[in-house]
Amino acid sequence: MSPKVFVRLPFIWYINFLRGTPLLVQLFLFHYAVLPAVLGSTTPVISVMVTLSLNSSAYVAEIFRAGLQSIDKGQAEAAHSLGMNKIQVMRHVLLPQAFKRSIPPLGNEFIVLLKDSSLGAMIAAQELLYWGRAASGQYLRVWEPYLMVALVYLILTLSLTYLLNYMERRLDVK
């Protein structure tokens, strides 16, 4: 959003990389290469958390940017004419409205992230799918463990959808 290209470019490429590569590839990259190089060692849970955070930051930044750009320019101009500086305009006028408008896509992002966390099983993070695969491997059965995993994910996402709809109604999101 900065008019200066050299300020914008690294952020644009950070977002391009994280949105343009598969999450599983990012997970492998961070778990096996980046985090061991930076921290010395890592655990699967930390790797999943870091990867999900970085991946979600790219998507959430785009959601916020769209929310900010959807606010009429006249509002910022009016706030400037009242003597507010750039930071005050952002904090008191633009961000509250942009956040309210961003709630529905942010909710979707949370649901997507919840489902994407299942990729953690690929690096042995002991989340839901990991235990489904463990049960499947022990008993050589596929229906029972994977149906159970699917059911738990369904309960989680439906609960989250209900909660987000309730929040949207309370905050009167249009």
Partner: peptide, 28 residues
């Protein structure tokens, strides 16, 4: 499965919170 569900929720919540906070720095 319940333990896995807890970890799934924890990882997603941390991911979305950290992602939300760090996304503000990307708005430059």
């Amino acid at each position: 499965f319940m333990e896995g569900m807890g970890l799934t929720i924890l990882m997603s919540v941390v991911g979305v919170l950290m992602g939300g906070v760090s996304s503000v720095f990307l708005l430059h």
